Simulated assay, not measured.
Amino acid sequence: MPNVENQQSDLLVSSLQKGVLTISINRPERKNAMNNAMWREMTTLFERASMDTSIRAVILKGAGDDFCAGADIAEFETLRATAESARVYEAGNSATFAAIRNCQVPTIAAIRGICFGGGFGMAAACDLRISSSNALFSIPAARLGLAYPADAMSDIVNAVGPQLAKYLAFSAARLDPAAALDAGFILEIVEPGGLDMRAAELATVIASNAPLSVKASKASIRAVLSKDANDYARANALGDATFESSDYGEGRAAFLGKRPPQFSGA
């Protein structure tokens, strides 16, 4: 994936050192609300990142003062005006959540300001979430007469637990960072000015480790959560593959030589 950052795009893509890719939602004037084209592009970006062996971690963040306000309500009267069109639109949202959820490399949501609706869904689909102290979380679907698809709700239940997921979905209440931290939805809280630096630091640490090991661990955790036989089989296969990898030899040699390992992902 190219190291490109186009300030005219609604989604900015840039690369850090050591295989860290950053995807920024770039509509700060709309609180980074996602339009239909952006949902489709986001899906493609995560699918490509998942297949790119040079990428070892992905950071998802919002430009400006907010993470994402969810789907752009301005499109509701056109692209979501009928039951049929609403279903098509929702399928596009679900495809994005699935692309993030199924990304083979670790994903980190760096959240500042508003994280509502579909923004909350994208964050929940990420593996790790950190937030600024001024973040605010909500699932306002009940105030719009909508319902979250079950696949997206599974991410939220896994991220916050069933009781809090029910409360957020039923009440459309807003959650502050302290409550989100207590619920386990976010890993840590940082000051707004340090959020990007901390996300990059966390991603760089992950990217410095053995990619095959990290991929196998991600698959194993997914299997534990899903309890799906296919997920267990895939996790076991990925785990077995690490024993035959050159990185396994490099890890042992680095440990014995008391030096930092240099993993190739092979």
Rank of each mutant, 00 (worst) to 15 (best):
M38V: 14
Y167D: 12
Q163M: 08
S94C: 13
E188I: 05
A178L: 12
A254T: 08
N35R: 10
F120P: 03
V224T: 04
N93T: 03
D247C: 08
A69G: 00
S246H: 12
D65L: 09
N6E: 13
T204P: 03
Y148S: 09
D176L: 04
G118L: 03
S50M: 14
K61C: 04
S208L: 05
V13D: 01
S54F: 00
A183S: 12
S154P: 01
G119P: 15
A200N: 11
I206W: 15
A95V: 12
Y248P: 00
E201N: 11
A57C: 13
A63M: 09
T204N: 03
I55T: 15
S264W: 11
A71D: 06
N102K: 13
A81N: 15
I156P: 06
S217M: 11
A200Q: 13
D151L: 15
A152I: 04
E29P: 08
A241W: 07
F76V: 15
L128H: 09
G62Q: 01
L21G: 03
E201M: 14
A165R: 02
K258H: 11
L168N: 01
N102C: 10
Y148H: 02
D228E: 12
S14K: 08
S245W: 04
D72F: 11
A33P: 05
A235T: 02
P261C: 00
C126M: 06
G119L: 02
A199G: 13
A254C: 07
A207D: 11
S245L: 07
I59S: 08
P2S: 09
A37H: 09
A237C: 01
L175T: 05
F170R: 03
P106R: 03
L128G: 00
D228V: 04
C126V: 05
G239E: 10
F255Q: 13
G194W: 07
S226H: 08
T96P: 00
N26L: 05
T53R: 12
G121Q: 10
A219R: 14
I189T: 01
D231F: 02
I156F: 13
A150W: 08
R174P: 02
E41C: 05
A169F: 08
D182P: 01
Q262S: 09
A223V: 00
E84T: 07
L175S: 01
N134A: 01
R143I: 02
F263A: 10
N230S: 11
P140F: 06
N26C: 10
A69N: 08
N209Y: 06
F170Y: 10
M42T: 06
F67Y: 08
L195C: 02
N158W: 03
G62R: 06
K18M: 11
G62N: 02
T107I: 06
A83P: 07
L12R: 14
T107H: 03
S226M: 13
R198T: 15
L175N: 00
V224F: 13
M34P: 01
G249F: 02
G70I: 12
S213C: 03
D65R: 13
L16A: 07
S50Y: 08
